[in-house]
Design a protein around this nucleic acid. Structure first.
Lengths: 254, 254
DNA sequence: CATAAACCTTAACGCAGCGTCAATGTAAAG
DNA sequence: CTTTACATTGACGCTGCGTTAAGGTTTATG
């Protein structure tokens, strides 16, 4: 596909000004200029822009991004793997911040005490910035390429079709679950469909399916508060609702 | 405690320049000025700064932050609860970005196909900004105050001591688990301690404990890939290791 | 007791990463 | 053939500080 500034800005969610600025800086030049002087971007530029946005998300300056991208040693795939590592780190920081605000609420309500230092845990971007030196070198040396990707092991063993299907399924489970939750009836059609989709999704990871194990997993969604938070994030009570739907679906409870 | 600019900047992880700038803007004024003209901050200012940093983290301009904080209707606790909601949303966005990079890697390796649009999923901060209107109003109206806090329901029912204990315990589980993982022996002393800590942690959420349920939960940590990722994030294989340790601990397997 | 180190102050300029006009040209649709 | 929706190159403006300058204060140490 070929894109003009406007089209590319649309799909990337940025402004046309930004694209022209990146051109001006030499960080993202269009593939060619047409007869009217319009910037035309191709596939390579789309991918390059994605890299730019990842780096920007991680707080790098445009200067550094240019430096990295124009380096002869730049390799797309290993860069993506570095993005992955850094994004997980960033999520770790966010988790700390979330714990922070939870604790602060508890403290404001007089349920716990909290030091002033604790009140600022999770804000520090310093850690991320300092890691820039390490970033992509030390980490990989320390754990090796394979270990870094090991968490994707199950996904990696899949065919493209399976991968697509499992992604689609997990999204469908969520969508259906939330829609079903609105009805309030775990034995209803929507809720049972959610349970069925959940079963299909599970079968991509389980060697053999059993009703008991399925029902057990549903119970765990309620038993473990971290998992409850996962499902309840968008709709509180969704985890318990899913468990009830699964219990009915598996016939373990009427 | 009372702090000078330097001390406060240290514990908050920001620069002294920033503190003076916030003073200049009238967004965070010191509690008093001492005889030498030094800025002295007190407890109220520490809390206010924390609010400022939360809002800044969520992308608000200093102008808006000032507006919010100086409004007569400002309430600390409900602001904290709004921070909580927004931070969870932000983590959702981050999760999308992480999925994005994982898919992009798979695509680069030729395992799946991916549209150009998909390559920019998760970058959009627009969604967050657009939600600002809803933020804290619609959500609370729809589900009611209690429902919003329902995910914390279990935690809320705890005494300060219990809350502290459960937080400490979950950290200990992780630490002990990772240390045990290094030994490679799920029947070893460290691994069994991790299982014991895990049991203690569970008992804060379960009404009654049974070996079978505990062992079942351990199995679920491996069955559900999302949960596996939770434990495997720092050390791949940790989830399966914990399951094995629990199986031995509960006597369900030698 | 002096003096160096480590703080504090205000004032002013500088910079990145765009947003936002302005003035103008081009493509596609009715 | 005109309107509408694009495109172009400037150029100025803004936010949120970093940084330096030119100086006062406090504390530790020889």
């Amino acid at each position: 596909m070929e894109y003009t500034v406007h089209k590319l800005s649309q799909i990337a969610g940025i402004s046309t000004r930004t694209l022209r600025y990146y051109d001006e800086l030499g960080i993202l030049k269009p593939a060619r200029i047409n007869s009217s002087g319009y910037r035309i971007y191709g596939q390579a530029e789309v991918n390059r822009l994605q890299h730019i946005l990842f780096y920007r998300e991680l707080g790098l300056s445009l200067d550094k991004i240019k430096e990295i991208l124009t380096a002869s040693s730049f390799d797309g795939i290993s860069a993506l793997q570095e993005h992955h590592v850094k994004l997980l780190e960033k999520r770790g920081q966010l988790d700390i911040l979330i714990k922070n605000v939870e604790k602060t609420i508890a403290q404001a309500e007089g349920r716990i005490t909290m030091s002033d230092k604790e009140k600022f845990e999770g804000f520090k971007q310093k850690m991320i910035d300092e890691n820039e030196a390490k970033y992509g070198k030390e980490i990989r040396e320390k754990y090796g390429e394979e270990a870094v990707n090991q968490s994707n092991a199950k996904v990696k063993g899949m065919t493209p079709e399976q991968y697509d299907e499992v992604t689609r399924l997990s999204e469908q489970v969520m969508e259906t679950l939330y829609a079903a939750f609105q009805t309030g009836d775990p034995s209803g059609e929507l809720a049972q469909k959610a349970a069925e989709l959940h079963r299909q999704w599970l079968c991509y990871f389980w060697d053999s399916y059993s009703k008991e194990a399925h029902a057990g997993l549903g119970q765990m969604y309620v038993d473990d508060p971290r998992f409850t938070a996962y499902y309840d994030e968008k709709q509180p009570g969704a985890a318990a609702f899913l468990r009830d739907a699964i219990l009915i679906y598996t016939g373990m409870q009427k």
